[in-house]
């Protein structure tokens, strides 16, 4: 469990990035933190693994105050995948990159080998085992960064903008993977701008604006409230925008899923056709 208690954070430059944030994330929850550029999303999640310590207030991870434990201790529990993979990658081969943290944590060589193979396979990177991460495309590098964290099997996973540069197939795999993590009672926190991805996953959404939380609830509720979203520079997903336009026909306004939308439109259309007959 992650508990954030009235956290303030001010960067050395004087920018107050977090202005009194309180939040509870339970084990096994899937949370998407959304909001405009500079809202404080990344600053907030960097508190979850102790990379940043609050200027005021407390962050507790499984009851441990992040001020009292080292980042290395927290890292076993909390895996963090950065927005920009180039901030994270440095090894000569993809395989070495993934094995690095495992070696640091003192896993045995045969375990390391098995876990590296598992992570490569999961993220479709097996063919690049011996390739330099820097020869790969942006989207592929992003997956290497993810694989290197997944390999040590952290209990809490934080993904900063995991869908950037990912194609449709990779996003679908990511979604399946997150659902699998959720089924295993792991906590997944993503920071994202990708409304369509969030619409497909339907997680709990925490919306941030100017260093504060402005909304917290299920995706289908938050993503279909234009006036709330506007504060956070987010546009409702495509399907929701169609339905908001159709409210004059008495359609529900909280629809984000393609198939649900299709069924509602069909029902309405068929009912209308029957009237005419």
């Amino acid at each position: 469990m992650i508990e954030v208690k009235n956290v303030h954070f001010t960067y050395p430059s004087g920018v107050e990035a977090l202005q009194g944030v309180s939040l509870k994330i339970r084990n096994g929850e899937f949370v998407a933190i959304m909001g405009q550029n500079g809202a404080g999303k990344t600053t907030l999640v960097k508190h979850f693994n102790g990379l940043l310590k609050p200027s005021k207030g407390n962050v507790l991870v499984d009851g441990m105050d992040t001020r009292d434990v080292s980042v290395a201790t927290l890292a076993r529990k909390v895996g963090f995948v950065f927005q920009n993979p180039d901030h994270q990658l440095f090894s000569e081969t993809v395989e070495e990159e993934i094995a690095f943290a495992l070696r640091n944590f003192g896993f045995k060589e045969n375990v390391i080998k098995r876990r590296v193979t598992w992570a490569l396979n999961l993220l479709g990177l097996t063919q690049y085992r011996k390739t330099s991460p820097f020869m790969l495309s942006g989207g592929e590098r992003k997956r290497v960064a993810l694989a290197s964290v997944l390999a040590w099997n952290p209990k809490i996973l934080i993904l900063d903008e995991p869908t950037i540069g990912q194609d449709y197939g990779q996003k679908e795999k990511l979604r399946q993977f997150i659902l699998q993590m959720k089924a295993q009672k792991k906590t997944v926190v993503i920071v994202t701008h990708d409304v369509e991805f969030v619409a497909e996953c339907n997680p709990r959404v925490v919306l941030m604006s100017n260093g504060k939380i402005v909304a917290d609830g299920e995706a289908r509720k938050i993503l279909t409230s234009p006036e709330i979203l506007e504060k956070a520079a987010i546009i409702p997903p495509e399907i929701s925008r169609v339905f908001l336009e159709l409210s004059e026909f008495g359609f529900p306004t909280n629809v984000i899923d393609v198939y649900e939308a299709g069924e509602i439109i069909l029902d309405f259309w068929e009912a209308k056709n029957r009237e005419h007959v």
Binding site: D167, Y168, E196, G262, I265, L266
Partner: peptide, 20 residues
């Protein structure tokens, strides 16, 4: 190929498949 077909295009295809 698995590219991200826009949701509204997919909605169109769904409706089309059901006769609308």
């Amino acid at each position: 190929i698995g590219i991200g077909i826009p949701k509204v295009t997919r909605l169109y295809q769904f409706l089309n498949g059901k006769g609308m």
